[in-house]
């Protein structure tokens, strides 16, 4: 066991993947000497060389497009998008090419490309540095979309994503990069990439979250426990595919469900969850599935972001409302 921050766990996972497979490449803006603006690729260029850890020109469409070409040639590129808000120049390559080439080739082509995106807010940043664009990608068939919430998962999930034969959009909760946990870097006995995890068992209400919101939900659950309310928290980990069985097993027991994410609620990922849970657990539900998220506005300036982000109080408020129905 080693104590690692989430950022360092990512770094260690990437390193393992590069050691285990010489075809794994890391590419992106400032990922080389600088080690990335969040230092996730720190030291990799020094140890694996400039041919495998590539400082690319400043062009996201170019980065993803050439990663596709490298994948066609047998490599496994791991692409870093510097910040969530800068994935959009690459959206065309991701949506029209990366996601669809397998089908276009009748299954002949695989694109094992991982697109890493630091996501979410809460770091006091300027515009475009705090967004949660996951729904754009979960809506795009052909992509797998996952989001880690803690160092243990960061370490294993990045390696599993790299091993995936399909393209994976990998969201990293940037404000949790500095969170620490014990990580067993020797073991490979990992939860499957696309399985959800019950991270806090409970009886009265199920709270679903992923990425940066998981920690907030755990804190909310602890606070609720003081009021005698037992909250079960599930870390979805994988958004597409979704491990719906773990979710419904929980909601069938609790009869209440709150979904939490930082992205705007309107047409957000929570809408899909609410619809599916309603279909599967209709007669077990004591209240509608409630959603807590960002407002349906652009991400606000940092001086008001605390108001925008789902916090303990807003989660608890939603939990309360499921009991008031």
């Amino acid at each position: 066991m080693t104590t690692l921050t989430l950022g360092k766990a990512m770094n260690t996972g990437l390193r393992k993947a590069m050691e285990n497979d010489p075809k794994v490449l890391v590419m992106g803006e400032d990922v080389g000497k600088l080690g990335g603006v969040f230092r996730i690729t720190d030291g990799l260029q020094k140890d694996f060389g400039e041919e495998r850890v590539i400082d690319t020109p400043l062009a996201e469409s170019g980065i993803v497009g050439t990663a596709i070409g490298l994948a066609l040639r047998g490599y496994r590129p791991v692409v870093e998008i510097q910040f969530d808000g800068f994935v959009f120049p690459a959206a065309d390559q991701i949506i029209t090419q990366l996601a669809k080439m397998r089908m276009r080739s009748l299954g002949a082509l695989s694109l094992p490309v991982v697109v890493r995106i630091p996501c979410g807010g809460g770091i006091g940043a300027v515009e475009h540095h705090s967004e949660s664009p996951e729904a754009y990608f979960t809506h795009t068939a052909g992509l797998r979309v996952v989001s880690c919430s803690n160092p243990v998962d960061a370490y294993s999930m990045i390696q599993q994503a790299i091993a995936s034969p399909d393209p994976v959009i990998f969201f990293e909760p940037k404000r949790r990069y500095w969170d620490k946990a014990e990580v067993d870097t020797e073991s490979t006995d990992w939860t499957p990439l696309h399985a959800a995890k019950v991270v806090r068992p409970g009886e009265h209400v199920t709270v679903l979250a992923y990425g940066p919101s998981v920690k907030t939900c755990l804190e909310a659950a602890a606070a609720a426990a003081e009021d005698g309310r037992s909250v079960e928290v599930i870390d979805l980990r994988s958004l597409n595919p979704l491990d719906i069985d773990t979710v419904t097993a929980s909601v069938d027991r609790t009869g209440r469900c709150v979904v939490v994410h930082e992205a705007p609620v309107f047409n957000g990922y929570g809408a899909e969850l609410a619809a599916r849970i309603t279909e599967r657990c209709f007669y077990r539900l004591e209240a509608p599935v409630l959603r807590v998220g960002g407002f349906s506005t652009p991400y606000p300036p940092s001086r008001v972001e605390e108001q925008y982000l789902p916090d303990l109080d807003r989660i608890l408020d939603a939990v309360d409302r499921t009991f008031a129905w």
Binding site: E29, D30, G32, K33, L34, V37, D55, T56, P57, L58
Partner: peptide, 8 residues
């Protein structure tokens, strides 16, 4: 461009 020199 942050850490990348012009030649990149």
């Amino acid at each position: 461009a942050i850490s990348e020199p012009l030649e990149r």
